[in-house]
């Protein structure tokens, strides 16, 4: 079953391009954000060079989400289920293949972004981080995990909506736009969104400097992971039951 899903993924060009785009954009934005933040740093405020170089995931999570959505919505589901009526197995195999593909691409993308970003920061004479610095390896792995979680949320959205357009819109609005517009919200709500909204909390996994107003890295990521699990369970239950 897993091999079947792997053949499906491998035999199309768009998923590969999606992951290559993810990688390229992640490195480019990591480098850009690291350069911009290093230039603006006043030498006094808290400075997190690791996080700066990995912040490209805020943009590349779109590619991860789209990858997850398309993995399900481009499926000719009737043909697949007529050949394999045990639906949970089909969805589990798909979940595994999507997760592994995005995790590997995400880890490579994060590592390259880290190296490019740190080089850019060092070139400006601003304190930079090395791979062995505390939290750096965890933040790089965390960026890969973050993208994987977003891809699975995308896939769950694809299963639940059965529509590419609806799922992509939903994931981008929920994952990206809600935290961006937090500053326009009433204060109590804004505080909740900034601290606890799954994608905002999940990004804490990139941080290597403590922030008293925010969750610690792993608890933050646990909020995102928990949301992913809930959505995936909803997807499995719906997929098992519904008529296709």
């Amino acid at each position: 079953m897993i091999r079947s899903e792997w053949i499906k993924l491998r035999s199309l060009r768009s998923p590969a391009w999606c992951l290559i785009a993810l990688l390229a954009v992640n490195v480019l934005f990591g480098w850009m954000i690291a350069t911009a933040q290093a230039r603006q740093w006043d030498g006094v405020a808290a400075w997190d060079p690791v996080r700066a170089s990995l912040s490209g995931v805020i943009v590349t999570q779109i590619a991860a989400a789209v990858f997850g959505v398309l993995a399900f919505t481009t499926e000719t589901i009737r043909s697949s289920l007529a050949a394999m009526p045990r639906r949970s197995r089909l969805l589990a195999a798909k979940t595994l293949v999507v997760a592994v593909a995005v995790l590997l691409a995400g880890l490579v993308a994060a590592l390259l972004a880290f190296l490019a970003g740190q080089a850019a920061i060092a070139a400006r004479g601003v304190p930079h981080a090395g791979l062995t610095d505390p939290g750096a390896a965890r933040a790089i792995a965390g960026a890969g995990l973050y993208l994987t979680a977003v891809a699975l949320i995308g896939m769950a959205a694809g299963v639940l909506t059965r529509s590419t357009a609806a799922a992509v819109t939903g994931v981008i609005a929920g994952g990206l736009l809600v935290p961006v517009f937090a500053s326009a919200m009433p204060e109590a709500l804004a505080r909740f969104v900034v601290g606890w909204w799954p994608t905002a909390a999940g990004l804490r996994i990139l941080a290597t400097t403590p922030d008293r107003d925010m969750l610690d890295p792993w608890p933050g990521f646990a909020v995102l992971a928990g949301t992913t699990v809930v959505l995936m369970v909803a997807a499995f239950v719906t997929f098992r039951r519904r008529d296709t």
Partner: peptide, 11 residues
């Protein structure tokens, strides 16, 4: 061929 291979692998 890939379409059929994926179906064959699933079973």
């Amino acid at each position: 061929r890939a379409h059929l291979s994926a179906l064959a692998a699933s079973n």
